[in-house]
Write a protein that binds this DNA or RNA. Structure first.
Length: 466
RNA sequence: GGCGGCAUAGCCAAGUGGUAAGGCAUGGGUCUGCAACACCCUUAUCACCGGUUCGAGUCCGGUUGCCGCCUCCA
């Protein structure tokens, strides 16, 4: 059974069959880089990074492109406010983006195209649209002739007339129709601009994605993804531009993730209720944030709150502990156990369920529950007096495999205690041997002050950071 | 006004026809020198009303409530 993807275009789950067998061309709308990313921006990055990982896990060769919009009204505004040039602002926040998303366990895209690097292609693209009659010049601006494109509205499932009834769209006297949108904007005095056949100016908002997707992935891509709020007008306009230009299907599967809410309201830069990733990571383990994001289906909204963050911390801790306990047992008590086949087959069942649920429109919430199932299974196994190296290693490998798909590796950095602390630990082991529990507890408290938790097991004392 | 989404235990959250996954929290037990970790047990008339069906959280119709898009926004 093929992977099922909910396609916003059809509003249904569809079997995923890429254009070219075994290969996936994927484009994810990236941020406008005029500020640090907030956790709402981080959601698509994490979600589609996971989609990409899963597709790769299932054997696809994925080409993943995600843009930076580095020319835009907001960047110009930010540059003016800070008294620096637009490219400098862009560069600063692109670097910040990489730092934040890397911390969140997201791999870099194969290509991160930037608008400023594609001016000739953008201008050519617009010229072609003008020639085809899909765009027109008006006082140095170029507008897209929305009504000319037959399929306009097919993604947002609205007809041109329905959209117009919205009535919040202002009819500028430069436009033929209120729904027309700018492909190119004439430069205002002092603004960053590029030479074009229509004079100095810069691209409108939507054109860059059409141009850069085509430039790096070709006329037709398999998956185009982004936040729900991009459905209209951004993605609708991309379709209009690209399909008018090429005459071919622009993107075959459209994926849209839900929002992050704060107190049940959408988090957005315009509402000014956003939480920056950069700030949050100062006090929070980045993996917790990733766990939090993946614990809800990507198309559903998530409400962000302290309580839920704490739940994610506790859940992640449970997984990490299960993994650490396996490692500890492997190091301290290898051997041969019975019923190896039974345990291996139980593990395999969990793996199959994991794949099955991820195949079903990337149900990461359910997939995480499979990791919890695996934890219970391995913890139960550790109750056995005699464990086998083979089974322990299989558990560890499966944990690594499945958690890796979700981008939640349980890194176990080999850490050493300093000599003084090591001596204390030895003293405590000796004290317990002599049943001097008062001293043993005293030492355990000392460790606790150093944020080290001691746990006594049948296989000896182990420690972990609190 | 148009289009769409959501409503499942104290909290979060899976689940698109066959007597409700999972996590957190709570309570009880086992394990432990005591703990910790862990394991076992414990908690749901699936918003409301009607319909289809042998059978519905799941399909259809309606009601209520919340949210989103139609304007920059992931």
């Amino acid at each position: 059974m093929a992977i099922q993807i909910f396609n916003s275009l059809s509003r249904q789950k569809e079997a995923f069959i890429p254009l070219e067998e075994g290969k996936v061309k994927m484009y994810v709308c990236g941020p406008t880089v005029y500020n640090y990313i907030h956790i709402g921006n981080a959601r698509p990055v994490i979600v589609y990074d996971t989609v990409r990982r899963y597709l790769a896990y299932r054997g696809y060769d994925v080409t993943y492109v995600s843009n930076f919009t580095d020319v835009d009204d907001k960047l110009i505004k930010a540059a003016n406010e800070l008294g620096v040039e637009v490219p400098e602002i862009a560069e600063r926040f692109i670097q910040a983006y990489f730092e934040d998303t890397k911390a969140l366990g997201c791999d870099e895209a194969d290509v991160h195209p930037r608008v400023m690097d594609h001016m000739p292609q953008i201008i050519d693209f617009i010229e072609a649209l003008v020639e085809k009659g899909y765009a027109y010049e008006s006082q140095g601006d170029i507008y897209y002739r929305t009504r000319k494109f037959e399929g306009y509205g097919k993604l947002s499932h609205q007809s041109v007339d329905e959209l117009k009834v919205g009535a919040r769209i202002e009819t500028g006297d430069k436009k033929e129709d209120a729904l027309d949108f700018a492909l190119w904007k004439a430069a205002k005095p002092g603004e960053i601009s590029w030479e074009s056949p229509w004079g100095k100016g810069r691209p409108g908002w939507h054109i860059e994605c059409s141009v850069m997707a085509r430039e790096h992935l070709g006329d037709t891509i398999d998956i185009h993804a982004g936040g729900q709020d991009l459905t209209f007008p951004h993605h609708e306009n991309e379709i209009a531009q690209s399909e008018a230009y090429t005459g071919k299907t622009f993107a075959r599967y459209w994926m849209h993730n839900g929002y992050i809410n704060i107190d049940n309201e959408k988090m957005s830069k315009s509402l000014n209720n956003f939480v920056l990733v950069n700030d949050i990571l100062k006090e929070l383990d980045a993996q917790v944030l990733r766990m939090f994001m993946l614990s809800v289906h990507y198309r559903h909204p998530i409400n962000y709150s302290q309580q839920l963050v704490e739940d994610a911390i506790a859940g992640l801790e449970r997984l990490r502990t299960a993994y650490a306990n396996l490692k500890h047992r492997l190091e301290t008590s290898a051997g041969l156990g019975d019923h190896t086949d039974i345990w291996l087959s139980k593990m395999n069942a969990i793996k199959e369920e994991f794949v099955e649920t991820m195949d079903d429109d990337f149900n990461t919430a359910n997939a995480i529950s499979k990791l919890f199932d695996l934890s219970r299974l391995s913890n139960t196994y550790l109750l056995e007096k005699q464990t086998s190296t083979e089974v322990l290693e299989a558990f560890i490998a499966l944990f690594g495999e499945l958690a890796g798909v979700l981008g939640l590796p349980f890194k176990q950095e080999a850490e050493l205690l300093d000599a003084e602390v090591e001596a204390l630990l030895a003293e405590r082991i000796e004290a317990r041997k002599n049943r001097d529990f008062a001293r043993a507890d005293e030492i355990r408290d000392l460790f606790k002050e150093k944020n080290i938790i001691l746990e006594d097991t049948a296989q000896g004392t182990r420690w972990k950071r609190g």
